[in-house]
Simulated assay, not measured.
Amino acid sequence: MSTDSSDVAARLDMTRPHPARRYDYWLGGKDNFQADRDAAEAIAAVFPHIRTAARENRAFMQRAVRHLAAEAGIRQFLDIGTGLPTADNVHDVAQRIAPESRIVYVDNDPLVLVHARALLNSSPEGATAYIDADARHPERILADPALRSTLDFSQPIALLMVAVLHFVEDHEDPWAVVRHLVDALPDGSYLVLSHATFDPLDAETIAAMDAVNKNIRPLFSPRPFADVARFFEGLDVLEPGIVSVSDWRPQPGPRPTPAEATGYGAVARTS
């Protein structure tokens, strides 16, 4: 992993919002700039539940990793669209259960690269690595030496694409991206995926969100259930299926409604 300061500085545009930094802001983090905060607040003005949605998506990821590590025996994780380091990242959750777990993180935000050392704080028994790459280019991720030196492709791997594919537009074919990655995984691997949706929202909220979205880049592309289900074609989707992220194997007690969480989540196994 290279963290050349001149390269990072050249790529770090503080005037343009980035999804990872906006997400960090909604989660209460401090690794964001005014442009990120302005975009985040513009969305929150028309959808006040956005912070709840961000927290619920994060909690879904943590429950999914916990299940795969504790119940399915998975010891390898490839997390694409990692975001800025915060409490209970993938390696924190997995290595708490199985210290020998190995994790590769992938993101394209130069600020995530700056803070990647926090993602590389592995247990002595396991390993972590970071790849500076874009989810739109799966072939580059799969060809990166850090991936092959950290993960053993003769053993099952959990691929995480959590809250990232709604930033890949239809013309960029996010379904082909997922297929490319899943096809490269060993048998018995898993896909953990969450995706924003407007399905549970009323027409007025959708119109307001669409109006805000026109002025924010990268374009935000929430998708209906049928389009999200396409990511899981040919895979064995675990119970309870493709559901609101809040409803995927939740902890006991009250939880947000699908209209507050505004995201589908599921875990599926390859053959």
Rank of each mutant, 00 (worst) to 15 (best):
H137P: 07
E139L: 14
L151M: 06
R148N: 12
L151K: 03
H137R: 15
R140E: 15
I131H: 10
I141G: 01
L142Y: 03
D144Q: 10
T128N: 12
D134A: 13
L151N: 00
Y130W: 12
D134T: 08
L151P: 01
D144H: 15
P138M: 05
L147G: 09
L159F: 10
H137M: 04
S154H: 12
F153K: 04
R140T: 12
F153A: 02
Y130M: 14
L142F: 07
A146T: 12
Q155T: 10
L159A: 04
I141F: 04
H137K: 12
R148V: 08
P145F: 07
L142K: 13
A135T: 15
P156G: 03
L151I: 06
S149F: 01
A158T: 06
R136L: 13
D134K: 07
Q155C: 12
A133R: 15
A158D: 08
L160H: 12
D134H: 05
A146S: 14
A133W: 01
P156F: 01
A143R: 08
A146N: 07
A129P: 00
A146D: 11
P145A: 06
D132G: 06
I141W: 04
L159R: 04
R136Y: 04
A143T: 06
D152A: 09
Y130K: 13
L159H: 01
H137D: 14
Q155P: 02
D144M: 10
L159G: 09
P138T: 15
Y130G: 06
A158W: 01
S149A: 14
R140M: 11
S149I: 08
D132H: 15
D144E: 11
D134V: 13
H137S: 15
D144V: 11
S149Q: 13
H137V: 14
D134Q: 08
D132L: 06
L142I: 10
L147Y: 07
P156L: 10
S149D: 15
L142C: 09
